[in-house]
Design a binder for these strands. Sequence first.
DNA 1: GGAATAGTGTCTTTGAGACAATATATC
DNA 2: GATATATTGTCTCAAAGACACTATTCC
Lengths: 232, 232
Amino acid sequence: MAYDPRSFPPFAVTVDIVLFTVSDTLEILLVERGGPPFEGAMALPGGFVAPDESVTDAAWRELAEETGLDGDLLKGVHLEQLATFGAVDRDPRMRVVSVAYVGMCSVRPELLAGTDARDAVWVDVTQLRELAFDHAEIIATGLERVRAKLEYTTLATSLAGEDFTLGDLHRIYEVVWGIELDLANFRRKVLATDGFVEPTWQKRVSPAGGAPAAVYRAGTATHLSPPLVRPQ
Amino acid sequence: MAYDPRSFPPFAVTVDIVLFTVSDTLEILLVERGGPPFEGAMALPGGFVAPDESVTDAAWRELAEETGLDGDLLKGVHLEQLATFGAVDRDPRMRVVSVAYVGMCSVRPELLAGTDARDAVWVDVTQLRELAFDHAEIIATGLERVRAKLEYTTLATSLAGEDFTLGDLHRIYEVVWGIELDLANFRRKVLATDGFVEPTWQKRVSPAGGAPAAVYRAGTATHLSPPLVRPQ
DNA sequence: GGAATAGTGTCTTTGAGACAATATATC
DNA sequence: GATATATTGTCTCAAAGACACTATTCC
């Protein structure tokens, strides 16, 4: 198909990041909009793709700017492309196609210390208010992606810290899926999957009491086969 | 984040379609490029998104133009967004971000009868030559998507015709996955999944001999749980 | 009859899920 | 001791996989 490079229809291309973390609940990073449209509403962090950077690079740049994380800490974050949203009127000002990304990280004090992150907050996904643009739809898509990914990948470890107990990992599954899982069967499943977690040979006690728990770190496996499927 | 609508970085946005069908092998629809760059190379069908159409609409429009299918027959085709490819230099002429879609259809004589389809051909995915742009990567992504989708959805029926035998469906799985599957266990699995297929109460004989086979059509279910997983 | 396809039966093994039991920490 | 967490054990049931067997068609 031949075409004239000077007469193409002009679009703006942006990236939006749905960054998840697990504390007591499943939370995403949102920013408050300071101007119209949707002034005062919450929105996903994101911004324009620059002419000289790839879409993926733009996503990583925005992630770094909004979280204040730098090189080494960024490597602990998982980021993957989610989907592209290209309805004609999704932005009332102009034609914008947005490539959404899903991120998963563990909460750290360094987060939100960056310069661009002054207005960024973690919000419980079950307590979302009005959202700007089509960001509610993007978040719903991202939420389903994360829930599905926990079934057949080891990505839950990216929501845990550097090291974690099987109780921690169990809680991440329960919080993300919003259901209760039998801990005994969960433990067996995780330990039976080669490369999901590896022992650090250390023990850790919980402030709430209980026996000391073995501490693990993420293994080298990326996929779970057979998967760890959601009940029901 | 405030920005000036008149000073955004300009991009072209295109759609590319990876349309699969199963005949004796797994095949995709390709067009031969008539001009530079990559003149003479095979490329995915696709084109620009118009200013007044959504990205999804553009994908359906291109699909219709390239296959020559119209309203009713198009409904038998499954089309879904695959991923977006946005490397800086993926098109040597200008900055282009392409949203790729995956399609699945059964081969029909009406295909390739459209005006834009004169150069379109079905190519065995195992026999691909040099491809234009990053289309080899797009195809590889689409291929893995289709293979994975057969595991946990009923989409194999969109690669079969209006009605089909379990032998037909079995062959589709074998061709797409490139492996042999035990037919007896496959039959039981399909029939045990509510809504995967429904009987038409008709029988069909194969030209190669054998007992007459019961004819089924697609059921109403979209997901398989538990999934029909690839061996190994 | 021989080859090809359709369909059923059966046995083994694997794994998911329910749930009991025991051990060790904090308060 | 009460409570919370960690860890192991056991039993049942569902499903996957291997494979034998029968039936019906074309050549």
